[in-house]
């Protein structure tokens, strides 16, 4: 049977995945924002996510709060270890978050807020990629605290992960725009979706080959028999989805690319899980060691099991209210 720490590790992984997909597409729109052709295209692109973005970002708060609650030791080690990328990420999120309202309030300085939205999204994404990379590459632990240096998070591998995530979020953002918009904006989105799809798949390849080189322990999981049989579906499915994505983008099936891109993210996420488990701070602290006492985990689990379906329910409701292609004239501004 699953014990409470394992269940919570699963729930946290789920919320981080939901965060990555949801905020991924609205951060992605920020990343391609300056490449859109006209101010009205930018208005529509932003309005396509305006009703949902802060719901999307709430999953990040759940990720941080949930980690602190369920695995306080891991939270206490990871945050100081990744001090700079986390601080820069949240500051970047401030820059892009305020832009959603400010750019409508101050037309004279709209360009400034457009820049704020673009750089905020780009830097926040890059930092998230760095965090991911640093996490995979391992964190040095001393007792119950971080034991490494200030710059351990800054390596060729983590920077590659940062760039990879920028490409990935751009893919989510552009395919979202394909699904939600029409006309010139949709055409632009197709063009950049193709570019970001190629870049994303390239980086997935690079990072996948690089990760096993970081540690023999990870290599063993991927390249020895019989484990190989269990993990083989991941690359196979990735290849299949990549093919579907390419077909959707070339034949311009508006509804295909976005779900397929989510599928690709899910597979990468699964691949990551294979490399990391059973650690919560890779190769230093296991899920069991970092877990809060069962009384904490159980108390939260009751709430989570009741509330998460409700949250997912009204989140789906919100998306349903704003379904279909965006009306360029809508908005309360």
């Amino acid at each position: 049977m699953f014990d409470l720490p394992t269940v919570w590790a699963g729930l946290l992984a789920l919320s981080i995945f939901i965060y990555v997909v949801l905020d991924g597409f609205d951060l992605g729109i920020g990343i391609v924002f300056p490449f859109l052709k006209s101010d009205s295209d930018r208005d529509v692109a932003m309005n396509s996510v305006a009703p949902v973005w802060d719901g999307n970002e709430t999953w990040l708060v759940l990720g941080g709060g949930g980690l602190m609650a369920a695995f306080p030791l891991a939270y206490a080690v990871v945050m100081p270890a990744l001090y700079a990328p986390f601080i820069i990420m949240i500051l970047a999120l401030v820059f892009r978050g305020v832009a959603f309202e400010y750019r409508w309030r101050d037309k004279a300085h709209e360009k400034i807020w457009d820049q704020s939205f673009f750089y905020g999204s780009l830097i926040a994404t890059f930092c998230q990629g760095i965090v991911l990379g640093a996490f995979v590459q391992g964190i040095e632990v001393d007792g119950r605290a971080y034991g490494g240096g200030w710059w351990d998070w800054f390596t060729p591998f983590t920077v590659t992960c940062g760039v990879a995530l920028v490409a990935g979020y751009a893919l989510l953002g552009t395919t979202w725009l394909i699904m939600k918009t029409e006309g010139e904006l949709r055409d632009t989105a197709y063009r950049y979706a193709k570019l970001s799809a190629l870049a994303t798949l390239g980086f997935v390849g690079i990072v996948s080959l690089w990760t096993p080189l970081l540690s023999p322990e990870i290599a063993e999981r991927w390249f020895t028999f019989p484990q190989l049989m269990f993990v083989l579906p991941v690359p196979t499915l990735t290849a299949i989805l990549a093919a579907i994505l390419g077909w959707g983008l070339i034949t311009k099936k508006d509804q295909v690319a976005f779900p397929t891109s989510i599928g690709l993210f899910a597979l990468c996420f699964a691949g990551l899980g294979i490399g990391i488990s059973p650690y919560i701070v890779p190769r230093a602290i296991t899920i069991q060691e970092a877990a809060a006492p069962d009384s904490s985990l159980l108390f939260m689990l009751v709430g989570a099991l009741i509330l998460l379906p409700i949250i997912i329910g009204y989140t789906v409701f919100t998306y349903w209210v704003f379904r279909g292609k965006v009306d360029p004239d809508a908005g309360y501004h």
């Binding site: 305006a50 009703p51 949902v52 802060d54 719901g55 970002e57 709430t58 708060v61 759940l62 709060g65 949930g66 602190m68 609650a69 369920a70 306080p72 939270y75 206490a76 809060a292 006492p293 009384s295 904490s296 108390f299 939260m300 709430g303 989570a304 509330l307 998460l308 949250i311 009204y314 989140t315 409701f317 919100t318 209210v321 704003f322």
Partner: peptide, 25 residues
């Protein structure tokens, strides 16, 4: 964390999602 973490998790689950979810509407 084992004491205040779950309370904050409940804040996110009961309140933050509710606000953010319905704010769009």
């Amino acid at each position: 964390g084992p004491v205040i973490g779950p309370l904050m998790a409940y804040e996110v689950l009961t309140a933050f999602f509710l606000e953010a979810g319905f704010l769009g509407v």
